[in-house]
Computed example of a mutant assay.
Amino acid sequence: MTEGEKIRLVAWSRELRSVHERLRNALLIAQEAAASGEPPGRDLLLFCHGFCAALTGHHEGEDRELFPAIAAEHPELRDTLRKLEQDHSMIGHLIGGLQLAVDSSAGTDELARHLEGIAAIMESHFRYEERQLLSVLETLELDADPGRVLGPL
């Protein structure tokens, strides 16, 4: 294995950590905008829409590309991957609730509650995913575009 191949293999674990950190930051920006007490303005709505789209794209990429690649190389992780996919579904449901609140011009308190719920589940999910998959990602042989696999962030 060449040094370039080794760097690419290890890069998947770094890519996942990086995407998770950007999503945490995007959520924090949306939460800070909601906590401002100002009536929901364009910035808050934009932050909520952007965060929702980014998180959804990340989970869709994992379900479509990353998890099947992991399952093929590590069948012993299929139960873990199913749990992570269930989390994705639950988070998708919570994002749907936030999106409805945004679309119905809900107040900042309601938007903040939606964001808080998403934050709690998302953080638990990210920590579990990182504990279970980072070491696997350091050796995963997947020749694919990181934006397609982990979402366009």
Rank of each mutant, 00 (worst) to 15 (best):
A72M: 05
T56C: 10
R78G: 00
H114E: 04
L9C: 01
E110A: 13
A120E: 15
G57W: 01
E138V: 09
Q31V: 12
D79W: 08
S124P: 05
A119C: 07
H125M: 06
D79Q: 13
E32R: 14
V136D: 05
E110S: 10
E5S: 10
L23N: 12
D145P: 01
H93K: 13
G92W: 12
E21V: 04
L140H: 00
P146L: 07
S124A: 13
P39N: 10
V149R: 01
S18V: 02
F126H: 05
L77C: 06
G117Q: 07
G107Q: 09
A120M: 14
L140P: 00
I118F: 04
E85W: 00
A34E: 02
H20K: 03
H20D: 11
I7W: 04
W12N: 02
H59P: 00
L134E: 04
Q31A: 08
Q31H: 12
T108H: 13
K6R: 14
R78M: 01
R42G: 12
N25A: 14
G97V: 10
G147N: 11
A120P: 15
V136Q: 05
E85Q: 08
G117A: 06
A119I: 10
A11P: 00
T108I: 02
E21N: 08
V149M: 04
S135E: 15
R127P: 01
A112W: 10
R42I: 11
L153R: 07
E116R: 15
D145Q: 10
L23W: 11
L84T: 02
H125A: 10
T80L: 03
H114C: 15
E130L: 10
